[in-house]
Nucleic acid binder design. Structure first.
Lengths: 215, 215
DNA sequence: GTCTATAAGACGATAGAC
DNA sequence: GTCTATCGTCTTATAGAC
């Protein structure tokens, strides 16, 4: 009944089964690395959390470091680009765009409880491995430039002066966001939802004061 | 000649010698924990970096965790209070106070190259040990409240409205500072000295715009 | 007070059974 | 493709020499 055609291949092909094992191991690694840290986590912990043994782990990854790097790469690839796409292509008024940016940041931070902890683990790892230090720096520069370009667009829509230092502003916004996410993980009561929006509003009000308001 | 009075005690008493060993071990621990991380550092590494063996280490500390906690406690005790004292009791105009605050933050960050890395290590440790999580939260609250009180004083000197949410502002300033320090450790070129001051200026300009300017 | 030697265990990684 | 058994290394911590 559950196997209508005994001759057909299993519901999951060998390739699919291996891919699934790989995904389960990566998910488990996310949890274990977040809970125990990179150095503190053992391959045994990870394999067990995924419901396998270390044999399966070494069959899918070359070792602990490989597993960690795979996670690091997967995380960093899409997140920021997605965020900018969401808040970028809009015809909404500027206030709505700003609050949408803030909302999205809140959502990202809320969606993944381990975000701040893993972020810290990745950062420390990168600070100690020159290769990844470079990658991290380059990636941040990209994010900053994308955000700066988006902000420049917004400013242009409003007909503002081009003298605004968008790079500096973007750096400040990204640093602020990282700081608030970390603080919120420390104690959610310290960082109410609307603090993101408030901070952004104040910063933009300051810009308006210094660089002139909408023409 | 070098020992004018053989009967007198050595230049360092036993107590002093032990205290010195303790300090050397703590200094070494700072460097080793910053370079290898808490879990990645071995007590052997630390003892060797201090010029001793593990025997001396276990004679002065109960183990690796004890050493780490001693460091954590020593670091957190004075820093923020000192910073506020420096920028607090002043009769200088508001612009000068703001730039002095920014200068001091730059100085703190520059003085200690390992600040950001150790800060991350401490934070991750605290996130995994409930006792220290509580201590960290309480400490941040204190810092935030001290800063908020300082800012309220400044505002009062300027005769501004009391409606400004100083707690939120302080949280934002502290989060921003932490984020910028971390970013600067990632790549100093991303965070020029004056970005601290710029960020603070923009935020305060935003506040002025929302809550009214000097009477 | 510090060092040397050592105990007892956890670790990452590999080889071969199934 | 996954599991079990095992190797060699490194770990924290202790006991006793000096």
């Amino acid at each position: 009944m559950t196997e209508p055609d005994p001759g057909t291949p299993p519901r999951l092909s060998r390739k699919e089964a291996k891919a699934r094992t790989r995904e389960l191991l990566l998910d488990a690694a996310t949890r274990v690395f977040a809970r125990k840290g990179y150095a503190g986590a053992s391959v045994d912990d990870i394999a067990e959390a995924a419901g396998f043994t270390i044999g399966a782990l070494y069959s899918n990854f070359s070792g602990k470091e490989d597993l960690f790097i795979e996670l690091l790469s997967a995380r960093s690839s899409t997140r920021m680009a997605d965020a900018l796409a969401i808040v970028g292509d809009s015809d909404a008024p500027i206030e709505q765009r700003r609050s949408r940016l803030a909302d999205h940041l809140v959502e990202v931070a809320a969606q993944d409880a381990d975000l701040a902890v893993l972020e810290a683990e990745f950062w420390l790892y990168a600070m100690r491995k020159p290769d990844f230090h470079e990658r991290l720096t380059a990636q941040f520069r990209e994010n900053r430039d994308s955000l700066a370009a988006l902000l420049a667009d917004w400013a242009q829509d409003q007909g503002r002066s081009g003298a605004i230092p968008f790079e500096g502003l973007s750096t400040i916004l990204l640093a602020l966001f990282q700081g608030l996410v970390k603080l919120r993980r420390t104690d959610p009561a310290l960082v109410p939802d609307d603090l993101y929006a408030t901070a952004i509003r104040w910063l933009f009000a300051g810009l308006t004061a210094e660089y002139g308001r909408d023409s």
